[in-house]
């Protein structure tokens, strides 16, 4: 199966396509026969002894044996450890309810901030933006967010947002922004200095030195969702030359 998967890497597959183990007619008795191991990522599911594709997209491969489906999607499904931008909707007692664009609102305890104790409560109002990560995120339980990492430090998380603009983009663009040595980010850095917070739920926050520049950057990012690298570079170049 590993060989068929590798052959079809980079192909566009649809739900319903499957990979099954080929039965070898002859297994060599002398040479070593190692069991194949395949790690399935999002979009691939195991069903019995077959591997089923359940989302449409391009099959990607990472050495040594990780495969997943790269699809264009807008709706976010929470996963543990991912950092997102959420909006606080309810402040009730000890727990805040945060909307992150999923099927339910996540809960964020007031103690999950750096340096907060029962006496020293964090300053969070309804409507604030929080950058936090998922502590619990599976399909059966209510998602739970925290603004500290495992050692108790904030590490960039927490309430933020004055003066910037938050907007939504597709999940694919967010993933492209977060890859190491991201091209989009590199192109953006050459434009204007700005602060950028990337939430994996498709929300981005931008702040630049003036309102105009912030608007330009947010429009650029929203439009380069659907552009190839070349078109994007052309567009950025035009903007840099001052077609503001």
């Amino acid at each position: 199966m590993l060989s068929t998967l590798k052959e079809r890497t980079g192909e566009v597959l649809l739900p319903g396509d499957e990979f099954s183990f080929e039965t070898d007619d002859s297994i060599s008795l002398t040479g070593p026969v190692r069991p194949e191991k395949v790690v399935c990522g999002p979009g691939l599911r195991r069903s019995g002894d077959r591997l089923l594709v359940c989302k449409s997209g391009v099959l990607r491969h990472k050495q040594p044996h990780m495969f997943w489906m790269d699809s264009q999607q807008r709706r976010y499904v929470p996963a543990k450890g991912e950092t997102i931008i959420g909006i606080v909707t309810v402040k009730s007692g000890d727990v805040f309810k945060v909307d992150f664009g999923g099927s339910e609102q996540a809960s964020l305890s007031y103690l999950a901030f750096e340096g907060s104790t029962k006496r020293n409560r964090p300053n969070v109002q309804v409507g604030d933006l929080v950058f936090s990560q998922f502590l619990i995120a599976n399909k059966d339980m209510e998602p739970e967010l925290v603004c500290v990492d495992s050692s108790g430090r904030a590490n960039g998380m927490g309430v933020f947002g004055g003066g910037g603009l938050v907007f939504t983009v597709s999940l694919g663009l967010v993933r492209r922004l977060l890859t190491p040595h991201s091209e989009v980010l590199a192109d953006l850095q050459q434009l204007f200095p700005c602060e950028l917070v990337v939430g994996m739920n498709g929300r981005l926050w931008v702040k630049s030195s003036s309102v105009q520049q912030t608007l330009v950057i947010s429009n650029l990012l929203q439009s380069c969702d659907a552009m190839t690298a070349q078109q994007r570079r052309q567009l950025f170049r035009r903007v840099a030359q001052g077609a503001l």
């Binding site: 909307d99 409507g127 604030d128 933006l129 004055g162 003066g163 603009l165 938050v166 309102v211 608007l215």
Partner: peptide
């Protein structure tokens, strides 16, 4: 619908004061 965050509201009002619209109109 997604709730409107305070930061978005403040930014939009500030931009409107400067006669700037979100899509450049």
């Amino acid at each position: 619908d997604t709730p409107l965050s305070n930061c978005e509201r403040d930014f939009l009002l500030k931009a409107i004061e400067e006669k700037k619209r979100l899509d450049g109109r």
